[in-house]
Structures are given as structure tokens and as C-alpha cells.
Nucleic acid binder design. Sequence first.
DNA 1: CATCCCAGCACAAAGGTTTGTGCTAAAAAT
DNA 2: ATTTTTAGCACAAACCTTTGTGCTGGGATG
Lengths: 351, 351
Amino acid sequence: MAITLKDIAEKTNCSVSTVSRVLNNKSKEFRISEETERLIIETARKLNYRPNELARGLRLKKSHTIGLVVPDISNPFFAYVSHLIQRYAYNSGYSLILCNTDEDIELEIQQIELLRRKGVDGYIILPVGTKQEHINELLTHNKPLVLLDRIFHDMNTNAVVVDNRKGAYQAVKHLIDNGHKRIAIIQGLRNTSTNNARLGGYVDALKDNSIPIDERLMVGNDFRKENGYIETKLLLKIEEPPTAIFTTSDLITLGTLQAIAEEGKTIPKDVSIVAFDDIDYAPYLMAPLTSVRQPRDLMGQIAVKLLIDDIESTGTSKKEKLVLDPKLILRKSVFNLYSHKDEFSAVYSGY
Amino acid sequence: MAITLKDIAEKTNCSVSTVSRVLNNKSKEFRISEETERLIIETARKLNYRPNELARGLRLKKSHTIGLVVPDISNPFFAYVSHLIQRYAYNSGYSLILCNTDEDIELEIQQIELLRRKGVDGYIILPVGTKQEHINELLTHNKPLVLLDRIFHDMNTNAVVVDNRKGAYQAVKHLIDNGHKRIAIIQGLRNTSTNNARLGGYVDALKDNSIPIDERLMVGNDFRKENGYIETKLLLKIEEPPTAIFTTSDLITLGTLQAIAEEGKTIPKDVSIVAFDDIDYAPYLMAPLTSVRQPRDLMGQIAVKLLIDDIESTGTSKKEKLVLDPKLILRKSVFNLYSHKDEFSAVYSGY
DNA sequence: CATCCCAGCACAAAGGTTTGTGCTAAAAAT
DNA sequence: ATTTTTAGCACAAACCTTTGTGCTGGGATG
């Protein structure tokens, strides 16, 4: 079927090894005559030879493939980062095997297992975050690996994350500065580094401003839309409802928007919102969203660079933990309770 | 390093072939004693044996991998479809190699070439659409393949698309029904099946209602945000500006929204919009978007099913071309010029 | 007792590469 | 004329599986 080195060898009356060397640009190194070289290259082109990467990978113990494990590629934030990762990886000569975990830790374990069988050269993982033995396993076997977005603090590995605590702190502080005291947080998946840090920033900001912590305002348990929808519905019905909600992911925000629309409330008049993940549509929503923007361009790029450095240094490269700064983008989803006007800083960020 | 069949064979004093057969559940078929079977399975488990899929793939001529070629995974529509594809593929035992073409035909050709080298078992391609020889090449070599979203009409292959002409027709008809006569279309990449069909629907709707075609209102040339932004800016400045814009992709819409916001106009009062691709955020935008929804859940699922049927039938399965129906979702981005009120049909679709 | 059968496994090839080593013939050196 | 060098390439192993075929020893059969 497919053309192999052997076919070329037969056509040219050379040995397979000679053909291989010529096609791998090792003609000089092995003193192969220019005539032979030309002949081989020519017939390879004519036969439309295509190296079999499986065979190469087997022999070379290198697949030129990296595994990308994300919770949910349909989440715009992950989709954006994945796009960049794909591009940088491709430009560096690597393909990407895409795995969705759907925030299911068992699925994550399975998918990583599969990636090992496939012999990927390295892993970029946005872990679910509730278990880590399987990832430790990779590390003890010296598999090149970089953690992205979420992190395990006690793990010695490459990682690229945003300073979630700082981002959350800024978000909540901004609400406080605008006079809000009943501030709710809709959390993502509990006990993930991301959620812990965002929750931490929330709590810190309240404490620093002597605002009592109210457990009833600290709701939610995963990063999806439904979570945002349900929790917002409930929040709007409690006794002393919040005047502001801090939503900790773009999908949560989507659910929150839906709930607010359904209840006939308006943003920011009835309820203020600060979101995490500054999606592209944020400026053009019902109320242009004030939100915490992650440096998503950098994240993908750095992750790939760290990973490929690790792969190609064969274990000699230092592990780096990079913490990037988030940035609060002010728009119009926060009501200023002091001036009774829209956002005190009316800087319109058109993205 | 990694445990191989050979290692297990040595530990158990069996031959490699016996180990292979046991681990592939062929003990009975090859009359291997239960004792040996247990021993092998046990030590495989103890040593944490992991089959090398590269070697398997080489031997079996099957990689259990499919190549997914998309124009841009960061586009929410493609991201959503990709997520589904990944899930169905995984559940059927296939991994996904993800390729972005960035709407660049040369990149598409390169990526497909690479996929062939990697020995993928099949392809799901959302082609750029400006060249097709490289895809024909795959077909003549009997590679399982399904085209998604965009199509080549003269190509005998599996394909899943939406009826773009009908969707566009409905969209424009809806504008006409609301009294609009100056209707612009911002096109995507010219000469792609998708764009041709959407443009066709636009033209048909105008003709059927005796509205003259105005070339100045038929602008745009790719599916990205920047295109929507620039063209909208220009459209708003021409002599007799349009009262309505039909945007032919979600990213174009995003750019259009940005331009309209910048110009200080409001939707739908100053300009009406009907969009293609009903993104999740559509109901919660500045003006809840009236838009054409594609059956994106079905598209991914069907594509995977067609492909895997083709792969596993080894060429005996018929090629299917499926055309799915789009649906116009009415919200509030169209101004009724007759009644001077918001959308005559005020059905609010909360998605 | 000789023959046959069959359970139970091993051998080796094949799949397409890469690569260390070895071989041959011609050219150069002595 | 004999030895040494070197250009130019071939051989075979190795990577890890899978699989067609063949081998062996013990029990049953005649």
C-alpha cells in the first residue's frame, strides 16, 4: 500500500539504511555519493514517500506528540488557550492529542493512562484537581509535564497559573469600594487550587474591610453554567439577598445571567456582577461585564515553551512555577451604592 | 524502562506470544492453561504493564486515532462541536489529534499531510474550502473521511452540513417581514460552500420580495471578528446606511457588536441584527440576538458515527451526505419598522 | 507396543524505521 | 608490487506487537 523505505531501496538498488540516511540528511556524515543521494531523493519524491511516524516513533522512542488534557474544550477560556497551544506546538514540530475530562477525575485518570500508551512525549494538563496520584506517577517516571490553570502546591513540576487569589481580591475589593456589603460568591469545583485561591481572595477582601463572612453567600460547587443558574436563582430568593455576585468562571457567569434575566432583574441596578475569565463577549453583554482577565495568550505560550524545553532537555531543565498577574477590567456591571450611579470608574474597556 | 511483553515473558517463563495472547483474551482460542493465564495476568498487573500503542499500531496498521481538522478551535461553535466529537470518539475507542488551520489552506494541506504520516484511521475535516485536491487525494486512497460544516458539492464523501441557504433565507426573510429593505450581509470567506449558500439565501430572499440587490451592502470576506468590525464601521458610514445587518458567523457578529457599540448606536433601534451561529451568550447580549441556530449537537455526533462506521466497515459502507435543518431563534435584535416597536414576535427564547 | 491425537506452548516473521558495525573495491602510499 | 587508507555502501539488530505455523510430550487408542 503505502510506500516504504524498502520500496525506494528496491527501485534504486540501494539498501534501506542508505535510503534512510539520505532522507534524514545524513548523506555527508555517512559519505554517500551525491549521485546516489540525488537518485534517492528523486525517487522518494516521485513515489510520494511518506515516512511512517508510528515506526519512527517506535524506533526513536519519540512520537512528536503531546497530550493536552482539559476539563472542557467548549469552555471559551479553555478553547482559546487550546488554540494557542496547538499553534505553538505545531510550530515546534509537535501534534496535539486532545482529551476532555468533563471535570471527571476518573475520566482524567483514564485519559492520561491512554496517553501513556500512545507514547506521548509530554503532557499539558489542566487538572480536575481532586486527586493527584496519577499525576505524581507521571513525575516519578520523569515524564515531561506542565500543569496549567490549576496547580498542586506540593508538587514539584512545571506549572503556569494566574494569581487567582489576587484576582479575586481585586474583584471583591472593587465591589466593596462601590459600597457593597452583601457580596455572594458562586464557587467552582471545591478543593481545586483555583477555587480555593479565588475563595481565599474573596474572604481576605471581606476580612480586610471588616465585612462579616456569611456562609449563605458562599455557594456553588462546580464551574458549569447550571451551577451558576441554580445558585443565582436561590441567592435571589434568600432573606437578605446579595447586592453583588462574584462569579468564578465564565460558564457560571452565563448561568447567572440567565437566572437574572429570568427573574426580571437588571444588571447592575438590581444586582451587580464581577466575573472571572474575561470572555470576548463580556463588553457586549446585557451589562458590559466588569471581570478579571487572565493573561490567556501568555499562558498557552509559556506552557508549550516549558514543556518542550523539558522534553528536549531530557530531564536536565529546572522545574518552573510561573504565577501570572490577572487584571481587573472595569465595565458597567457594578452599581455604585454611594453615588447611586453606574460604576464610579466609567472607563469603558472596549477590549 | 517501560514494561514490555518480553519482561512479562521472562518473569513467567513463557514466550512473548503466549503473553500477548493471554493479554488479548485469546487464551481459550489458543488453548492456554488457566494456570498460565492467571500467572501472566497477575504479573502483568503487578508490573503495571502498559501496551505500547505505537508498536501495536505498526503491527495492526491501526492507530485508533482520528484527525480533527478545524479552522479555529477558539471559535465557540467549533469548540462546542469539537467537544462532542472528542467525547463520542473516546467512547468508541478513538483518540483525537487536533489540528487548527486558521483558515489557511496551505496549513490545512500541511496538517493533513502530517496526519497521514501519523497513520490516523480517519479524518473529520471542517475544510477551509478554497482547494480540494488534497482531500480528493485522501478519498482516492480510500481513507475514511467525513466533511463537516463545509462541503464540496462534487465530492463523493461522507458529509454533515446544515442547510445554510435555508437558514440565511429565513434570517433575511425575517428582516424583510419587519419592514427592512436596506439589508447588509457581512460575508465569511468567499467561495466556501458555507458562504456561497448563505449569500445565496440572502439574495434569494431579497429577490423573492422584489428588493433590489445593492452590491455595496454585500461586504466582508472572512469569518473573523476583525472582518465584522471593519465592515460594520464602513457600513455605518455609507450614504444610505443599512437598517439591518445579517452577520454570517458568530465571530463576525462579535466584531459587529463592537463597532456598533463604539459608534454609539444601539441595537435594534439604530440597526437590527440577525446572526448566524447561535452562541450560548446570544440571549444575554446588549440586545438579545435573533439568530440562526445550527443543530450543533447532532453535527458532532453524526460526524463521528459516520466516520467510525466507515473505518470499521473497511470501505463497504455507503457515503452519506446529511443536510440538517437550521432554526431561526427570535429574540430582540430586530426592530419592526412597521409598528415601530421591538420585534413583532416577542417570543423570548431563554435558550 | 506402536500409533495417533491433542493440549500447551515456542519460534520466527512481519510491520517500517534507525543505527552501529562491517565489508568491498578502488585509490593512495610505500 | 604490496600494503594502507578511504569512499561508499550493506547487513543486521533493535524498537514492541501480533500471528501463522510448528514443535513436544503425555495420554488415549488400536
